[in-house]
Design a protein around this nucleic acid. Structure first.
Lengths: 165, 165
DNA sequence: TATTGTTATACTCTATAACTATA
DNA sequence: TATAGTTATAGAGTATAACAATA
Protein backbone atom coordinates (compact mmCIF):
# COMPACT_ATOMS: atom_id res chain seq x y z
CA UNK A 1 0.00 0.00 0.00
CA UNK A 2 1.29 3.48 -0.75
CA UNK A 3 2.69 4.62 2.57
CA UNK A 4 1.88 8.31 2.32
CA UNK A 5 -1.61 7.94 0.94
CA UNK A 6 -2.48 5.47 3.67
CA UNK A 7 -1.56 7.60 6.67
CA UNK A 8 -4.90 9.41 6.80
CA UNK A 9 -6.76 6.16 6.37
CA UNK A 10 -4.78 4.68 9.23
CA UNK A 11 -5.66 7.56 11.49
CA UNK A 12 -9.28 7.29 10.50
CA UNK A 13 -9.30 3.59 11.33
CA UNK A 14 -7.65 4.32 14.66
CA UNK A 15 -10.39 6.81 15.41
CA UNK A 16 -13.08 4.28 14.54
CA UNK A 17 -11.48 1.58 16.65
CA UNK A 18 -11.55 4.01 19.50
CA UNK A 19 -15.17 4.98 18.93
CA UNK A 20 -16.63 1.61 18.14
CA UNK A 21 -16.88 0.80 21.84
CA UNK A 22 -19.89 3.08 22.07
CA UNK A 23 -21.64 0.99 19.42
CA UNK A 24 -20.95 -2.13 21.40
CA UNK A 25 -22.23 -0.58 24.61
CA UNK A 26 -25.40 0.54 22.88
CA UNK A 27 -26.01 -2.90 21.45
CA UNK A 28 -25.38 -4.57 24.77
CA UNK A 29 -27.78 -2.32 26.63
CA UNK A 30 -30.66 -4.73 26.07
CA UNK A 31 -28.81 -7.71 27.53
CA UNK A 32 -30.09 -9.31 30.74
CA UNK A 33 -28.77 -7.76 33.94
CA UNK A 34 -26.76 -10.74 35.15
CA UNK A 35 -25.24 -11.47 31.76
CA UNK A 36 -22.48 -8.95 31.04
CA UNK A 37 -21.01 -8.83 27.50
CA UNK A 38 -18.07 -11.00 28.47
CA UNK A 39 -20.40 -13.76 29.64
CA UNK A 40 -22.33 -13.43 26.43
CA UNK A 41 -19.10 -13.87 24.49
CA UNK A 42 -18.25 -17.03 26.42
CA UNK A 43 -21.66 -18.50 25.66
CA UNK A 44 -21.57 -17.49 22.02
CA UNK A 45 -18.14 -18.98 21.35
CA UNK A 46 -18.94 -22.16 23.20
CA UNK A 47 -22.02 -22.53 21.05
CA UNK A 48 -20.23 -21.72 17.82
CA UNK A 49 -17.17 -23.93 18.33
CA UNK A 50 -18.48 -26.54 20.76
CA UNK A 51 -16.83 -28.05 23.83
CA UNK A 52 -13.33 -26.74 24.39
CA UNK A 53 -10.55 -26.15 26.94
CA UNK A 54 -9.89 -22.93 28.81
CA UNK A 55 -6.84 -22.12 26.73
CA UNK A 56 -8.75 -22.45 23.50
CA UNK A 57 -11.50 -20.16 24.72
CA UNK A 58 -8.89 -17.71 25.89
CA UNK A 59 -7.41 -17.61 22.41
CA UNK A 60 -10.79 -17.18 20.77
CA UNK A 61 -11.57 -14.27 23.05
CA UNK A 62 -8.07 -12.88 22.57
CA UNK A 63 -7.69 -12.15 26.25
CA UNK A 64 -5.42 -13.55 28.95
CA UNK A 65 -6.43 -16.86 30.46
CA UNK A 66 -6.61 -15.29 33.90
CA UNK A 67 -9.38 -13.08 32.63
CA UNK A 68 -11.08 -15.91 30.82
CA UNK A 69 -11.02 -17.92 34.03
CA UNK A 70 -13.00 -15.26 35.83
CA UNK A 71 -15.54 -14.91 33.05
CA UNK A 72 -16.02 -18.66 32.95
CA UNK A 73 -16.55 -18.73 36.71
CA UNK A 74 -19.26 -16.12 36.40
CA UNK A 75 -21.00 -18.10 33.70
CA UNK A 76 -20.63 -21.36 35.59
CA UNK A 77 -22.10 -19.85 38.77
CA UNK A 78 -25.26 -19.13 36.82
CA UNK A 79 -25.45 -22.69 35.59
CA UNK A 80 -24.91 -21.83 31.95
CA UNK A 81 -21.86 -24.03 31.48
CA UNK A 82 -20.07 -26.91 33.16
CA UNK A 83 -16.37 -27.57 33.69
CA UNK A 84 -15.49 -31.24 33.22
CA UNK A 85 -12.08 -32.80 33.81
CA UNK A 86 -10.23 -33.49 30.58
CA UNK A 87 -9.60 -37.25 30.25
CA UNK A 88 -6.61 -36.52 28.01
CA UNK A 89 -4.88 -34.05 30.32
CA UNK A 90 -5.34 -33.80 34.07
CA UNK A 91 -4.31 -30.15 34.15
CA UNK A 92 -7.00 -29.17 31.74
CA UNK A 93 -10.75 -28.71 31.92
CA UNK A 94 -13.38 -29.04 29.25
CA UNK A 95 -16.12 -26.45 29.04
CA UNK A 96 -19.55 -27.24 27.70
CA UNK A 97 -22.88 -25.44 27.55
CA UNK A 98 -25.77 -26.61 29.70
CA UNK A 99 -29.40 -26.62 28.73
CA UNK A 100 -29.88 -23.39 30.68
CA UNK A 101 -26.92 -21.98 28.79
CA UNK A 102 -28.62 -22.67 25.53
CA UNK A 103 -31.77 -20.96 26.73
CA UNK A 104 -29.75 -17.96 27.83
CA UNK A 105 -28.22 -17.91 24.39
CA UNK A 106 -31.67 -17.68 22.85
CA UNK A 107 -32.46 -14.70 25.02
CA UNK A 108 -29.22 -13.04 23.98
CA UNK A 109 -29.87 -13.72 20.34
CA UNK A 110 -33.25 -12.04 20.59
CA UNK A 111 -31.79 -9.02 22.32
CA UNK A 112 -29.10 -8.73 19.67
CA UNK A 113 -31.55 -9.08 16.82
CA UNK A 114 -33.93 -6.57 18.28
CA UNK A 115 -31.20 -4.00 18.79
CA UNK A 116 -29.62 -4.46 15.38
CA UNK A 117 -32.96 -4.49 13.57
CA UNK A 118 -33.63 -1.13 15.13
CA UNK A 119 -30.29 0.48 14.52
CA UNK A 120 -29.51 -1.09 11.16
CA UNK A 121 -32.99 -0.95 9.67
CA UNK A 122 -31.74 0.93 6.62
CA UNK A 123 -28.77 -1.35 5.90
CA UNK A 124 -28.89 -3.80 3.05
CA UNK A 125 -27.96 -7.40 3.61
CA UNK A 126 -25.02 -6.86 1.27
CA UNK A 127 -23.56 -3.94 3.20
CA UNK A 128 -23.82 -5.85 6.44
CA UNK A 129 -22.18 -8.90 4.91
CA UNK A 130 -19.39 -6.74 3.58
CA UNK A 131 -18.79 -5.13 6.96
CA UNK A 132 -18.67 -8.54 8.58
CA UNK A 133 -16.20 -9.72 6.00
CA UNK A 134 -13.90 -6.77 6.53
CA UNK A 135 -14.10 -7.04 10.30
CA UNK A 136 -13.28 -10.73 10.10
CA UNK A 137 -10.28 -9.91 7.97
CA UNK A 138 -9.22 -7.07 10.25
CA UNK A 139 -9.20 -9.38 13.22
CA UNK A 140 -7.20 -11.94 11.30
CA UNK A 141 -4.68 -9.31 10.28
CA UNK A 142 -4.18 -8.44 13.91
CA UNK A 143 -3.24 -11.97 14.78
CA UNK A 144 -6.67 -13.15 15.74
CA UNK A 145 -6.30 -16.35 17.71
CA UNK A 146 -7.61 -18.62 15.00
CA UNK A 147 -4.68 -17.58 12.84
CA UNK A 148 -2.09 -18.23 15.55
CA UNK A 149 0.05 -21.26 16.01
CA UNK A 150 -0.43 -23.20 19.24
CA UNK A 151 1.76 -22.12 22.18
CA UNK A 152 2.52 -18.81 20.58
CA UNK A 153 0.12 -17.19 22.99
CA UNK A 154 -1.17 -13.67 22.66
CA UNK A 155 1.80 -11.65 23.84
CA UNK A 156 2.61 -10.78 20.26
CA UNK A 157 4.10 -7.32 20.00
CA UNK A 158 4.64 -5.58 16.72
CA UNK A 159 8.12 -6.98 16.23
CA UNK A 160 7.30 -10.60 16.75
CA UNK A 161 4.16 -10.15 14.66
CA UNK A 162 6.36 -8.92 11.87
CA UNK A 163 8.80 -11.75 12.24
CA UNK A 164 6.02 -14.29 12.10
CA UNK A 165 4.66 -13.12 8.77
CA UNK B 1 -33.78 -6.15 5.15
CA UNK B 2 -35.11 -9.69 5.13
CA UNK B 3 -35.53 -10.43 8.82
CA UNK B 4 -34.72 -14.12 8.79
CA UNK B 5 -31.75 -13.94 6.46
CA UNK B 6 -30.25 -11.17 8.55
CA UNK B 7 -30.27 -12.94 11.90
CA UNK B 8 -27.02 -14.77 11.31
CA UNK B 9 -25.39 -11.61 10.02
CA UNK B 10 -26.53 -9.78 13.13
CA UNK B 11 -25.02 -12.39 15.37
CA UNK B 12 -21.82 -12.30 13.40
CA UNK B 13 -21.63 -8.54 13.76
CA UNK B 14 -22.30 -8.85 17.47
CA UNK B 15 -19.41 -11.29 17.72
CA UNK B 16 -17.11 -8.92 15.88
CA UNK B 17 -18.10 -5.96 18.01
CA UNK B 18 -17.22 -8.05 21.00
CA UNK B 19 -13.88 -9.15 19.57
CA UNK B 20 -12.75 -5.89 18.02
CA UNK B 21 -11.53 -4.67 21.38
CA UNK B 22 -8.53 -6.96 21.05
CA UNK B 23 -7.60 -5.23 17.81
CA UNK B 24 -7.78 -1.89 19.53
CA UNK B 25 -5.63 -3.08 22.42
CA UNK B 26 -3.04 -4.44 20.03
CA UNK B 27 -2.88 -1.19 18.11
CA UNK B 28 -2.62 0.85 21.28
CA UNK B 29 0.23 -1.22 22.66
CA UNK B 30 2.80 1.05 21.04
CA UNK B 31 1.39 4.22 22.61
CA UNK B 32 3.48 6.14 25.15
CA UNK B 33 3.11 5.01 28.74
CA UNK B 34 1.46 8.14 30.11
CA UNK B 35 -0.93 8.47 27.19
CA UNK B 36 -3.73 5.93 27.55
CA UNK B 37 -6.13 5.45 24.62
CA UNK B 38 -8.71 7.78 26.08
CA UNK B 39 -6.19 10.61 26.24
CA UNK B 40 -5.20 9.88 22.67
CA UNK B 41 -8.86 10.14 21.66
CA UNK B 42 -9.19 13.52 23.37
CA UNK B 43 -6.14 14.83 21.53
CA UNK B 44 -7.23 13.41 18.19
CA UNK B 45 -10.73 14.87 18.34
CA UNK B 46 -9.49 18.24 19.49
CA UNK B 47 -7.14 18.30 16.56
CA UNK B 48 -9.74 17.14 14.08
CA UNK B 49 -12.56 19.46 15.15
CA UNK B 50 -10.66 22.31 16.79
CA UNK B 51 -11.44 24.19 20.00
CA UNK B 52 -14.63 23.02 21.65
CA UNK B 53 -16.57 22.77 24.90
CA UNK B 54 -16.64 19.81 27.25
CA UNK B 55 -20.12 18.82 26.20
CA UNK B 56 -19.22 18.74 22.56
CA UNK B 57 -16.19 16.55 23.23
CA UNK B 58 -18.33 14.31 25.35
CA UNK B 59 -20.73 13.83 22.45
CA UNK B 60 -17.92 13.16 20.02
CA UNK B 61 -16.51 10.50 22.30
CA UNK B 62 -19.98 9.13 22.98
CA UNK B 63 -19.32 8.87 26.69
CA UNK B 64 -20.76 10.61 29.72
CA UNK B 65 -19.42 14.05 30.49
CA UNK B 66 -18.26 12.90 33.90
CA UNK B 67 -15.92 10.49 32.18
CA UNK B 68 -14.84 13.07 29.65
CA UNK B 69 -14.04 15.43 32.47
CA UNK B 70 -11.60 12.97 33.98
CA UNK B 71 -9.92 12.23 30.67
CA UNK B 72 -9.54 15.94 30.01
CA UNK B 73 -8.02 16.46 33.44
CA UNK B 74 -5.47 13.77 32.72
CA UNK B 75 -4.56 15.39 29.42
CA UNK B 76 -4.43 18.85 30.95
CA UNK B 77 -2.14 17.68 33.75
CA UNK B 78 0.37 16.67 31.12
CA UNK B 79 0.15 20.06 29.48
CA UNK B 80 -1.35 18.80 26.25
CA UNK B 81 -4.44 21.00 26.39
CA UNK B 82 -5.74 24.09 28.16
CA UNK B 83 -9.15 24.88 29.58
CA UNK B 84 -10.17 28.47 28.95
CA UNK B 85 -13.31 30.16 30.27
CA UNK B 86 -15.98 30.49 27.60
CA UNK B 87 -16.73 34.20 27.03
CA UNK B 88 -20.21 33.27 25.82
CA UNK B 89 -21.19 31.14 28.79
CA UNK B 90 -19.69 31.35 32.25
CA UNK B 91 -20.60 27.75 33.05
CA UNK B 92 -18.69 26.43 30.11
CA UNK B 93 -15.04 25.90 29.31
CA UNK B 94 -13.27 25.86 26.01
CA UNK B 95 -10.65 23.22 25.34
CA UNK B 96 -7.74 23.79 23.03
CA UNK B 97 -4.56 21.93 22.19
CA UNK B 98 -1.22 23.28 23.33
CA UNK B 99 2.02 23.11 21.39
CA UNK B 100 3.06 20.13 23.49
CA UNK B 101 -0.28 18.56 22.69
CA UNK B 102 0.45 18.84 19.01
CA UNK B 103 3.83 17.21 19.50
CA UNK B 104 2.24 14.40 21.46
CA UNK B 105 -0.19 13.98 18.61
CA UNK B 106 2.71 13.52 16.20
CA UNK B 107 4.11 10.80 18.41
CA UNK B 108 0.73 9.09 18.49
CA UNK B 109 0.35 9.34 14.76
CA UNK B 110 3.68 7.65 14.26
CA UNK B 111 2.78 4.86 16.66
CA UNK B 112 -0.53 4.33 14.89
CA UNK B 113 1.04 4.31 11.46
CA UNK B 114 3.78 1.94 12.48
CA UNK B 115 1.32 -0.50 14.02
CA UNK B 116 -1.12 -0.40 11.14
CA UNK B 117 1.58 -0.62 8.50
CA UNK B 118 2.72 -3.80 10.19
CA UNK B 119 -0.64 -5.41 10.72
CA UNK B 120 -2.34 -4.24 7.54
CA UNK B 121 0.60 -4.61 5.18
CA UNK B 122 -1.40 -6.79 2.82
CA UNK B 123 -4.48 -4.57 2.69
CA UNK B 124 -5.19 -2.45 -0.34
CA UNK B 125 -5.99 1.21 0.05
CA UNK B 126 -9.46 0.44 -1.34
CA UNK B 127 -10.27 -2.21 1.25
CA UNK B 128 -9.17 0.05 4.05
CA UNK B 129 -11.23 2.93 2.69
CA UNK B 130 -14.23 0.65 2.44
CA UNK B 131 -13.85 -0.53 6.01
CA UNK B 132 -13.58 3.06 7.21
CA UNK B 133 -16.68 3.97 5.26
CA UNK B 134 -18.69 1.14 6.74
CA UNK B 135 -17.48 1.83 10.26
CA UNK B 136 -18.39 5.48 9.86
CA UNK B 137 -21.83 4.47 8.75
CA UNK B 138 -22.18 1.93 11.53
CA UNK B 139 -21.42 4.57 14.11
CA UNK B 140 -23.92 6.92 12.52
CA UNK B 141 -26.58 4.24 12.55
CA UNK B 142 -26.04 3.80 16.26
CA UNK B 143 -26.76 7.43 16.94
CA UNK B 144 -23.22 8.63 16.81
CA UNK B 145 -23.06 12.05 18.37
CA UNK B 146 -22.53 13.95 15.17
CA UNK B 147 -25.94 12.76 14.04
CA UNK B 148 -27.66 13.85 17.24
CA UNK B 149 -29.58 17.00 17.92
CA UNK B 150 -28.16 19.30 20.60
CA UNK B 151 -29.40 18.71 24.15
CA UNK B 152 -30.65 15.28 23.26
CA UNK B 153 -27.75 13.77 25.15
CA UNK B 154 -26.65 10.17 24.88
CA UNK B 155 -29.17 8.40 27.06
CA UNK B 156 -30.94 7.12 24.00
CA UNK B 157 -32.37 3.65 24.50
CA UNK B 158 -33.74 1.54 21.71
CA UNK B 159 -37.22 2.94 21.93
CA UNK B 160 -36.34 6.60 21.79
CA UNK B 161 -33.84 5.85 19.07
CA UNK B 162 -36.68 4.37 17.08
CA UNK B 163 -38.95 7.32 17.68
CA UNK B 164 -36.27 9.75 16.57
CA UNK B 165 -35.89 8.20 13.15
C1' DT C 1 11.08 -28.20 33.61
C1' DA C 2 7.13 -26.69 31.08
C1' DT C 3 2.21 -26.13 30.75
C1' DT C 4 -2.83 -25.53 32.39
C1' DG C 5 -5.48 -23.12 34.97
C1' DT C 6 -6.65 -20.09 39.27
C1' DT C 7 -6.19 -16.23 42.39
C1' DA C 8 -4.43 -11.58 43.93
C1' DT C 9 -3.54 -7.07 42.69
C1' DA C 10 -3.60 -2.99 39.96
C1' DC C 11 -5.07 -0.14 36.04
C1' DT C 12 -8.34 1.71 32.42
C1' DC C 13 -12.74 2.87 31.10
C1' DT C 14 -17.56 3.65 32.00
C1' DA C 15 -22.15 5.12 34.34
C1' DT C 16 -25.01 7.10 38.07
C1' DA C 17 -25.71 10.33 41.50
C1' DA C 18 -24.73 14.32 44.19
C1' DC C 19 -22.82 18.68 43.93
C1' DT C 20 -21.26 23.71 42.40
C1' DA C 21 -21.77 27.52 39.59
C1' DT C 22 -24.00 29.96 36.05
C1' DA C 23 -28.08 30.94 32.71
C1' DT D 1 -35.54 25.87 37.08
C1' DA D 2 -32.40 24.12 33.84
C1' DT D 3 -27.78 23.45 32.04
C1' DA D 4 -22.35 22.89 32.10
C1' DG D 5 -19.12 20.77 34.32
C1' DT D 6 -16.78 18.26 38.43
C1' DT D 7 -16.19 14.77 41.91
C1' DA D 8 -17.33 10.39 44.45
C1' DT D 9 -18.47 5.84 44.10
C1' DA D 10 -19.27 1.47 41.97
C1' DG D 11 -18.90 -1.99 38.29
C1' DA D 12 -16.97 -4.28 34.12
C1' DG D 13 -12.84 -5.57 31.65
C1' DT D 14 -8.04 -6.37 31.20
C1' DA D 15 -2.89 -7.58 32.27
C1' DT D 16 0.94 -9.17 35.22
C1' DA D 17 2.67 -11.97 38.68
C1' DA D 18 2.58 -15.62 41.95
C1' DC D 19 0.79 -19.96 42.71
C1' DA D 20 -1.00 -25.12 42.48
C1' DA D 21 -1.39 -29.24 40.02
C1' DT D 22 -0.15 -32.11 36.27
C1' DA D 23 2.72 -33.46 32.01
Amino acid sequence: MAARAARRSYEELARHLSGIGAVRREMVRGFPQDCPPASAAVLTLLHKYGEMRMGRLSELMAIDMSVTSRHVSHVEERGWLERHPDPQDGRSRLLSLTERGNRQLDTLSEATTEALETFLHDWTEEDLAQLNELLERLRESFGDSRARLPHQGHRTDHRTALKNK
